[in-house]
Every structure is written in C-alpha cells, then in structure tokens.
Simulated scan of single mutants.
Amino acid sequence: MSTARWVLHLPAAATSAEGVDRLAQALRDSLRHVPALDFGELTISAEDDQSTRRRVWCDAPLGGDRRCALRTNHPDRCLDR
C-alpha cells in the first residue's frame, strides 16, 4: 500500500520573467537542503496564462539520483547538481 503524497503550491509574483527566474534560483539555493522540495519540477507562467507553464531547469536524469542543474534549453552538456 502506498502512502498518499501532497503537493505544495506556492504562488509568488515578479514583474518580469527574469525576475521570477531569479526568485526561483534564490529559493533553490536557499532551500536545496530540504529533501521534500523538488526544484527540478519547478515551473513558471504568466499571471494571466497560468495554464501555460515552462520549466526553469533541465532536470534531465544523469544516472542514479543525479539530475541536470542547468536551465532548460541549455546549449552545452548537462551538469550534475
């Protein structure tokens, strides 16, 4: 029997896409020690189009528990976080 899981939705606002990206980076940097948080799944959207979301980080699997820590659509090879 599996344990039920719950998801936290934390609305935050910024006046630009770059600003919300910086906020996401600051949250990941300051809270990466909290194992319950999965910043690889973090997405952002325009306030008036919240059904269209984009991922902030690549998060591609690199083997084992490792994931890519670079931004989405990065031009170089994936890097471990």
Rank of each mutant, 00 (worst) to 15 (best):
T3A: 15
D80W: 00
A4E: 04
W6Q: 06
R32I: 10
C58W: 04
R53M: 11
A60T: 13
H74K: 08
D48Y: 05
A60F: 07
P61H: 05
L31C: 14
P11M: 01
G64S: 03
D48Q: 06
P35E: 12
S51A: 09
G40Q: 05
H74G: 05
C68A: 06
A60D: 08
Q50V: 07
P75T: 06
S51Q: 01
R67F: 02
A14C: 09
T72Q: 13
L27Y: 07
L79R: 15
A24M: 13
C68L: 01
Q50I: 04
L70R: 14
W57Q: 14
H9Q: 03
T3Q: 14
R66A: 14
L8M: 10
L10I: 04
R81A: 09
D65A: 14
W57S: 05
E18H: 10
R77A: 14
G63P: 02
R66V: 01
H33A: 15
R32A: 14
T15Q: 07
P35N: 02
L37F: 08
A12I: 03
D59G: 11
D59N: 15
L10H: 00
A14E: 13
L79P: 06
R67C: 09
S30A: 15
A46W: 08
G40Y: 02
A12K: 02
M1C: 08
D65H: 05
D59L: 06
R81M: 06
N73T: 12
D65Y: 05
T72Y: 03
R53G: 10
W6H: 13
V56P: 03
L42I: 07
Q50D: 00
M1K: 14
D29L: 14
T72V: 15
R22H: 09
A26N: 11
S16E: 12
V20A: 04
R54N: 04
A4P: 08
D21Q: 00
R5S: 15
V56E: 05
D48K: 03
V56W: 07
D29T: 13
G40K: 10
S45L: 11
T72R: 12
A46H: 06
R5V: 09
P35D: 14
F39K: 07
R54Q: 14
T15N: 11
C78S: 02
I44G: 03
A12Q: 10
P61C: 01
C68V: 02
T43V: 11
A13W: 01
A24C: 13
M1Y: 09
W57K: 09
S45I: 03
L27K: 10
L8G: 01
N73Y: 11
F39Q: 08
S30I: 07
L70C: 07
R71N: 03
E47F: 04
R53K: 15
L23E: 06
C78G: 08
L37V: 06
T72C: 14
D49F: 03
H9Y: 01
T72L: 13
T52M: 05
D59R: 12
H9S: 07
G63T: 01
A4H: 05
S45K: 09
D59S: 15
P61Q: 12
L42W: 06
A36N: 00
D59K: 12
D80A: 12
A12E: 00
E41R: 15
V7K: 07
L27E: 08
S16F: 11
D76C: 02
T3G: 13
R81Q: 07
C68S: 04
R28G: 05
L70P: 00
A17H: 00
R81W: 08
V7W: 04
A13P: 00
T72M: 07
